[in-house]
Design a protein around this nucleic acid. Structure first.
Lengths: 186, 186
DNA sequence: CCCGCTTTTGTACGATCGTACAAGTACAGA
DNA sequence: TCTGTACTTGTACGATCGTACAAAAGCGGG
């Protein structure tokens, strides 16, 4: 009826994707609705269906936006690990900082579960699942990179669900063990 | 109106909990509804609200049922690890078998996410999160038990979301590294 | 200035949701 | 046998959902 706002389709689309990401983080993929997203973005309901024809499209856009955020986080990790004197200690600190924002962490596992259910979302989950090992690979090799990445995923999940503090010295020691070459059999 | 069936309240309650577990595994916690559960259980809609006053109660019962299944799995793990000549190899094989049923694996992460959102569900998630390390502890100690448990969680999540096969020799080697005492610093 | 296209918005429709509830049925005890 | 209680079921109500859509409004090219 009114159209009071300044016209800026791309900014609106981005705002909707960002709002969707927040709703997913708070309520989960299964409870994400057009109306909740519109309210979070401060836009009318019709705006959601204008830019994203179906709810699945809207959710995919939200997950895509989350992955973009994750990607920039990963780039920071890569940079900080490159300059770190002790890789294990630096990686532990990065985990600690990552855990500070529980909403972001929940989002990561929401993405994983969504990808586990829908193959079309799998490339998005790969950004984290393959991105972290790829960052570690130059430091410790491909196999240890994958192992340490999995260890970190498990530790983060543990801290998220039990709400206990991260055992930093313990994690550092475990990373060192995985980074070292295999002990010779006797 | 009719009451055709044989009367068995406890069996009905259990059937509803089991059906809820299946719906959660297939659709996720957020898309679990009274009607979907009733259809899966082959019971009328009214049966769900008679035994579980609210939807949250129904979902909690479904998760509880899932955890009971998980607990019996863990008992099997404990038993098989006790008699195994090589703990790392046996553990790897158990992971491989566990991954065969993707529905069950998804359920585990649904539970973790639900617990991350709702503190009341946390004791349920602890059954797995603390149960696996507890099983490993007699073999490798508390710290290594927690690390190996986290590694396995991460590896399983990786296999679930990327739908790649489990690298069994790689996992065995990583478990051995974490089980070994820390390498002395030089 | 006006016209055509994109953008924006409010409203509405049918479906589905959680939940309530009255009516009907089985069964235990008197 | 009769009765009260626990169980079972079908239906209904209000809320909320995804989606559609017409009307209004901005905006560039003639």
């Amino acid at each position: 009826m009114t159209g009071r706002r300044t016209r800026d389709p791309e900014a609106r689309k981005a705002a909707l994707a960002a709002a969707t990401m927040e709703v997913i983080a708070e309520a989960g993929v299964g409870r994400t609705t057009h109306r909740a997203v519109a309210a979070k973005a401060g836009l009318p309901l019709g705006a959601t269906t204008y830019y994203f024809p179906t709810l699945d499209d809207l959710i995919a856009a939200g997950l895509h936006h989350a992955v973009a955020t994750l990607q920039s986080d990963l780039n920071q990790w890569e940079e900080r690990l490159r300059d770190a004197p002790d890789m294990a200690v630096a990686l532990t600190r990065l985990c600690k900082e990552y855990l500070a924002d529980r909403r972001q962490v929940r989002l990561e596992y929401e993405l994983c579960l969504a990808a586990a259910r829908d193959a079309a979302l799998r490339p998005l989950a790969d950004v984290w699942m393959r991105g972290l090992p790829a960052i570690l690979e130059p430091h410790v090799g491909a196999a240890a990179g994958r192992d340490i990445g999995a260890l970190i995923d498990g530790i983060i999940l543990l801290a998220l669900t039990t709400e206990t503090d991260l055992d930093e010295p313990g994690l550092t020691a475990a990373i060192r063990k995985l980074a070292a070459p295999a002990p010779e059999p006797r």
